[in-house]
Amino acid sequence: MIRLVRDVDTRDVTAEIRNVVSAALDAVLAEMQRQATDPPPVGAPRDTGTLANSIGYMVSVENGNVVGVFGTIVKPVHYDVYQEYGTRRIKPKAFLRRAWERWIPQLPRLISSFREA
């Protein structure tokens, strides 16, 4: 299982702000899931579709922090690491990291736009 985690410290803010951060993180992770499940070369490699179907996300509040988890968490498959990071014989596909690198930097902007809405 591959898990990429984004933890946002919201211990010292109001419940309203925590909800805004949760909603923004949920929106970012939904876009990451969409990108990672797109057809190759952007998304997960396809043979049976099992790998793409294993990609998901969760948003929760733990100890006052908003936590987003993204990766092969729906139904983990044993070969996800080989496809993501590669082996001596398989080139890395980086479909999860590519989505992470594209969308996580946009989280602050989305939090601001959710606060203004």
Rank of each mutant, 00 (worst) to 15 (best):
G68V: 04
A23S: 11
R3L: 14
R3C: 04
A94I: 06
V42S: 06
A15M: 12
P45D: 06
V5N: 01
N53F: 05
A27R: 15
P39R: 15
P92V: 10
E62N: 14
G64T: 07
R89S: 13
A24C: 09
A15I: 09
D7E: 12
A27N: 08
R18C: 07
G56Q: 12
P45C: 05
G64H: 09
R89C: 00
I104L: 07
N65D: 14
E84S: 02
A44R: 05
A94H: 15
P108S: 09
A30F: 10
R115C: 13
E101M: 11
S54T: 10
M1C: 08
R115G: 12
Q35E: 15
F70A: 03
A36D: 06
I104N: 04
E31S: 03
R34A: 12
P92D: 05
I55R: 02
A52H: 11
S112F: 13
G68H: 06
A30Q: 09
T72P: 07
V28Y: 00
R6I: 08
V5K: 12
G71L: 04
R88P: 03
A36H: 03
P76A: 12
V8E: 07
R102F: 05
A44C: 09
R89N: 07
T10R: 06
N19G: 10
P105T: 02
N63F: 15
G68I: 06
V59L: 10
G49P: 01
Y57C: 12
K93S: 14
T87F: 01
K91L: 05
V5P: 00
L96P: 00
R11E: 07
D47P: 12
T37N: 02
Q106F: 03
E31D: 15
L96H: 04
R98W: 00
V67C: 09
I73T: 08
A27E: 06
L4Q: 05
T50W: 10
E16M: 05
P40W: 11
V67W: 08
A27T: 08
D26L: 10
D47S: 13
S22R: 09
I104Q: 06
A52C: 11
A24D: 01
P41G: 05
R97P: 02
Y57A: 14
S113F: 12
S112L: 14
V77Q: 13
T72W: 06
V59R: 07
A52T: 10
R6E: 13
T14R: 02
M1I: 03
E101G: 14
A15S: 11
D12F: 02
R109Y: 09
L4V: 01
D12V: 02
R109P: 00
G43F: 05
V81H: 04
A52S: 13
W103E: 11
